[in-house]
Every structure is written in structure tokens, then in C-alpha cells.
Design a protein around this nucleic acid. Structure first.
Length: 569
DNA sequence: GCCGTTTTCGGCCCGACTGTTTTCAGTCG
């Protein structure tokens, strides 16, 4: 799978061209890189089919370069560019406040080629003497280098929730604050967030800025202006705040929620009508006459589009769908009748069957399934054939004590050879069989794909658990050809899991969409190991929504009768 | 280098904040 390599090379080329002040080409290379990054299939397969130029942003020339990388693993053009510049752009580009112009200037005047060189000349106070630089810049860059060394990574969506609530509560407590809304990737429901974007409606922006930068937990003020400020919290998270008037609220929300790509496309739609769109509103290009801006709905409507939910705003076909009135009726949290994939003390969970079921009932759910681990070593305290009988009896007892439906089931290991450690006949006696990869996770793509597809083909599996087996910010996804897995899942009526455990969030939205396009259906789970984890399912709903999923695609929304029929094997 | 609901040529999103200089370039989102 060379997708990531190609993305990296194309982005690096864009950086170099930008440094060389080549016009427009950097944009083209970046656009192509972005398209490839969001592909769900191996780009080599697309190349085999001779369809590289079907990828948005890829034309003849970039197509040829991609082909060269696929064929040889290298790109002569890129090697040539690298020799031309002699600078470690990748590293220097990451320092906040340092862009192509300054990097070039530093190279020309002080022969700065990498981070080390830069740190040296900064400490010798040579940089502050340069034209266009000064003491402040010296300080900013040194600070940037320090920050880069510590590198605060992205944050799990789940961890951002409490920060969002803290900031919201704080700002809402002031009477000069009319509205507080969270925008950015958090509002789009991405599984990790880099920083937070907060939007406030107020007629007294200066006051809002003051209280914002003085919030507790603020360790650094990165910028403070009349309507826009940025701070860093003690945990390293950056929070950007923007204050707007009521009249601009919709336009500002649109702008701040993003994604950037979605906004760029929207602005193009506006331009075609002779209008311009910015964070203050939609106006005519000529004469600057007001068209819309108070609500997001107004703006979309004027542009001839249906309202697009934030989770869909990734420029992945949503504008076209909105124009044609073909947007999906996205599933919502309240459509979820129950959750799958829950663990108890019978394997590595913290609570009993009864405690888990009672909590689910308390949350207003109508059903849940128990899926304790069944497997070999590597899993904590897994179920065995010997213990299975008593485990099922226990669930039976719990069913009589609670007002919700409890399904029996296991989460069983897909072994290295694609077999499962329990016979088909015994698996058929369970309501919900989830099969997952837990061991031997470093197999090559071909073998791993075969392993998973074999399991799906040969056993009565209902749900493929956390298909990528990734851990966010910790462990990469399995090397798996998901297109083949999707095909096998569809063929054998296996639901793909959307796992809402904060570290897993697996499948992510873009892959849910790919699965949906391949004809797959989905089952949403909490992967709860504790009663408190049962509240994770709204996180999985985010992913489903990002994947364009409707109720008809999601097992959790169906009637009991339909669920039972779908689980029959 | 890519792309097309005015276009196969001529565009390519748009504005705030900072630091440095004194009207603006660079960076960022």
C-alpha cells in the first residue's frame, strides 16, 4: 500500500515549489495529495485499472508521477527538487510562525538548513538582526522549537468533550455572551481533534476576549485581537475564539465549522452566481449587497443547496448531493435502540451482566448484547467451551430481572489462519457472534486480508469487530484490503462494526462511507468494559453520520423482529 | 498542474493577527 508514501511525496513537492515561489502548482499538488489521502482502496489497484486520472486533482502529469512511485518506489522529479533546495523543509515547516518565505530568507542569509542550524543562529541572536525579523520573532521561533520537541499530539474526541464543556460553561456564565457554539473538527465529529474552535455571539467583543484569555487553565495567549483570539491550555490544547454579531452568525458558523475544503467549494458556488462568501456573510461581488448570513440554512438555500450536516462537510460529494436533493437522512443518537459488544467480569470487564443491563436500561436503551472474549491466550480471562454454558445461563437469569432485551454472544478471536476457536454449530447457538483480530496483528496485507475474508466466509459471524484494530495515537490500523473485506462482508451478511470506544473509533467515518458504497451494513457498539463505557455509543453515532449512514443501514435502529432475522445464520 | 452550469484558456477562497515598520508581508486557519 503506497498511498501514504505518495501523499507524503506530493505534499513535500508542494512545500518545495512554494519555497521556490512557483505559482499555483503547490495548490495542485496538495489537492491531489488530499484526494489520495482519503482513498479507501490501494492506489496501485487504481493504477492497474488505468484510472489514476479519475482521482480528483490528478491529471496527466501528476498521474505519471504517481505511476513512477508505484513502479519504482521513487520519483526522479522529487529527488531533483530535493537536491535543488538542500533544506530540511519538512522539519522547519512544522515550526509555528515559520513559512516558506522566512525559511528561504533564513537559508539565503544565515545558511539555515535544518532545526539544529536554526536553533544555533537564534541563540546567537543573529536572527533578530535580519530585516523583517526582530526580538519577538526570535522568541516565537525558539518557543516553537521547544514545542516541537515536546510535540503535543492531537486529542481524542472523547477527551475534548470535557474541555469543550468547561470552556462553554465558563463563557456562558457572562451576561454579555449571547451564544456559544463549538465549531471546527470537533463539531464535525472527527475522532481526534487538533484544536478547538469556539464561536461567540456578543455585542461586546473586547469583554469576551478579556475573560477568554483569563480563563483558568490558560497557560499561554497565542494571539489576542479585536474579534479573534487564541490561547493554549495547560494540557497543550489550543483554543481559538471568534466573536461575531448576530447578523453574521450563520456565515461565521459555516466558516468556523469547515472543513476548509467544504468552504472553498461553497465559495466557488457563490462566485459562480456573482457572489462572494466569507465569515461575515454572502454578498454580491459588485456593490457588496447583502444576500444572507444570519443562519447557515439561509446561506445554503441561497446557493441552491439543501442544508448539509456538519459531519458531511468534507467535500466528499456532499455539495453535489445537496444540489440534487440527495443528501442522506443521517442517523441520530435518539434512533439508537440498543448497543452491541459489551464485556463483563466473565472476561475482562469490570461489571456483572446485571449491572451492565441495568445501566443500559437506565440510559433508555431497549436492548444490548453481551460479547465477552472467547479465545486463546493474549486475551484477559477469555471464555472457554467449558465456561460457556454457565455464561449463557447467567445471561438468561439477567433477562428475567431487567426490562430490556439482552442478547447472548461472544467476541471471538480470528486466529492467524483465519479459523475461529469454536465450532460453527456452537457459534450458531449464540445470538450475536462478533469476530475480531486481536493476535498476530503484524501480518502483511495479503495474508491479513485472506485471514479475515476466510473467517467471514467460513463461519456464522454476525459482526466484524473493530475492523482495523487500530488504537488512536498509539497503534496503526491492520494492513487490510478493506475493499475485499467489504465485499466478503456483503456476500455473507456480516455487519461491519462501528466501534465507539474512544481509542478505537473504528471504522472511522470515511471508511464507513466506503463500506456503505460497497453495499455493507453496520452495527454500532460501545465495546464497554465498564458500565460507564455504555455512554460511548454517541461517539460511534458521530462516525456513522460521517459515513452517511441512515437508519436502514444500521442494525441498532431496527425492530427486534428484523434484528433477529438479520442475525440468523 | 488542474479544471470547466459563462471557460480547452485563464483562472485558482478570503480575512484576522503579528511583528516590523509607519503601510505591509508573512503566516495561519
Amino acid at each position: 500500500m503506497k498511498n501514504q508514501l505518495i501523499v507524503k511525496i506530493l505534499n513535500n513537492i508542494a512545500d518545495i515549489l512554494e519555497l521556490q515561489e512557483v505559482e499555483f502548482k503547490p495548490i495542485a499538488y496538495r489537492r491531489a495529495a488530499q484526494s489520495i489521502e482519503s482513498l479507501s482502496e490501494d492506489i496501485a489497484d487504481i493504477y492497474e485499472r488505468n484510472e489514476l486520472e479519475e482521482i480528483p486533482g490528478v491529471g496527466k502529469h501528476i498521474g505519471e508521477k504517481i505511476a513512477e512511485i508505484i513502479e519504482t518506489g521513487k520519483l526522479k522529479y522529487y529527488e531533483k527538487l530535493k537536491k535543488e533546495i538542500k533544506i530540511d523543509l519538512e522539519q522547519l515547516n512544522e515550526i509555528p510562525g515559520l513559512g516558506p518565505k522566512k525559511i528561504k530568507f533564513l537559508y539565503k542569509t544565515l545558511d539555515v538548513r535544518d532545526l539544529k542550524d536554526l536553533e544555533k543562529v537564534l541563540k546567537q541572536h543573529k536572527v533578530r538582526e535580519l530585516e523583517g525579523f526582530g526580538e519577538k520573532t526570535e522568541e516565537t521561533l525558539l518557543h516553537g522549537i521547544e514545542l516541537l520537541k515536546k510535540r503535543p499530539s492531537r486529542f481524542l474526541y472523547f477527551h475534548a468533550i470535557s474541555i469543550v464543556e468547561m470552556v462553554k460553561k465558563n463563557l456562558e456564565s457572562y451576561d454579555f455572551v449571547k451564544k456559544v457554539e463549538v465549531a471546527g473538527s470537533f463539531r464535525r465529529g472527527k475522532e481526534t481533534v487538533g484544536d478547538l474552535d469556539i464561536l461567540v455571539v456578543s455585542s461586546q467583543p473586547a469583554k469576551v476576549m478579556d475573560v477568554f484569555i483569563k480563563m483558568k487553565d490558560v497557560i499561554e495567549v497565542l494571539a489576542k485581537g479585536g474579534t479573534k483570539s487564541s490561547i493554549r491550555l495547560s494540557n497543550g490544547m489550543q483554543v481559538d475564539l471568534r466573536v461575531v454579531h448576530e447578523k453574521e452568525y450563520g456565515a461565521a458558523l459555516l466558516y468556523f465549522i469547515g472543513s476548509k475544503d467544504h468552504n472553498v467549494e461553497l465559495r466557488k458556488v457563490a462566485l459562480k452566481r456573482g457572489w462572494t462568501l466569507n465569515e461575515y456573510g454572502l454578498t454580491t461581488l459588485m456593490g457588496n449587497k447583502w444576500i444572507a448570513g444570519r443562519t447557515q440554512e439561509d446561506i445554503y438555500r441561497k446557493l441552491g443547496l439543501r442544508f448539509i450536516e456538519p459531519e458531511l462537510r468534507e467535500n466528499k460529494g456532499e455539495l453535489e448531493a445537496a444540489r440534487l436533493g440527495k443528501l442522506p437522512a443521517l442517523v441520530t443518537v435518539k434512533d439508537i435502540k440498543g448497543v452491541f459488544h459489551n464485556h463483563t467480569t466473565w472476561s475482562d470487564g469490570h461489571n456483572s451482566h446485571l449491572e451492565m443491563a441495568q445501566k443500559a436500561e437506565e440510559l433508555g436503551l431497549k436492548f444490548m448484547s453481551f460479547n465477552d472474549h472467547f479465545g486463546h491466550i493474549g486475551i484477559t480471562n477469555p471464555l472457554t467451551e467449558k465456561r460457556l454454558g454457565k455464561y449463557l445461563q447467567e445471561i438468561d437469569k439477567v433477562q428475567k430481572k431487567v426490562g430490556i432485551k439482552v442478547f447472548t454472544g461472544v467476541e471471538i478471536d480470528i486466529l492467524k489462519d483465519g479459523t475461529l476457536p469454536l465450532s460453527q454449530a456452537k457459534l450458531r447457538k449464540l445470538d450475536v457472534v462478533i469476530a475480531s483480530v486481536h493476535v498476530a496483528i503484524n501480518m502483511k496485507e495479503k495474508e491479513m486480508t485472506k485471514r479475515v475474508c476466510n473467517a467471514l466466509s467460513n463461519y456464522p459471524i454476525n459482526i466484524l469487530g473493530h475492523p482495523q484494530d487500530r488504537l488512536l495515537l498509539e497503534r496503526e490500523p491492520l494492513a487490510l484490503n478493506l475493499d475485499k473485506v467489504f465485499d466478503a462482508a456483503k456476500k455473507h451478511d456480516v455487519f461491519m462494526e462501528i466501534n465507539g470506544s474512544p481509542k478505537r473509533m473504528d471504522l472511522p467515518g470515511e471508511l464507513v462511507k466506503a463500506g456503505l458504497d460497497a453495499g455493507c451494513k453496520f452495527a454500532l457498539s460501545t465495546d464497554a468494559h465498564d458500565t460507564s463505557h455504555l455512554t460511548f455509543y454517541p461517539l460511534a453515532v458521530n462516525l456513522a453520520r460521517r459515513g452517511w449512514v441512515e437508519q436502514k443501514h444500521l442494525l441498532n435502529c431496527w425492530s427486534f423482529g428484523k434484528i433477529e432475522k438479520a442475525l440468523q445464520k
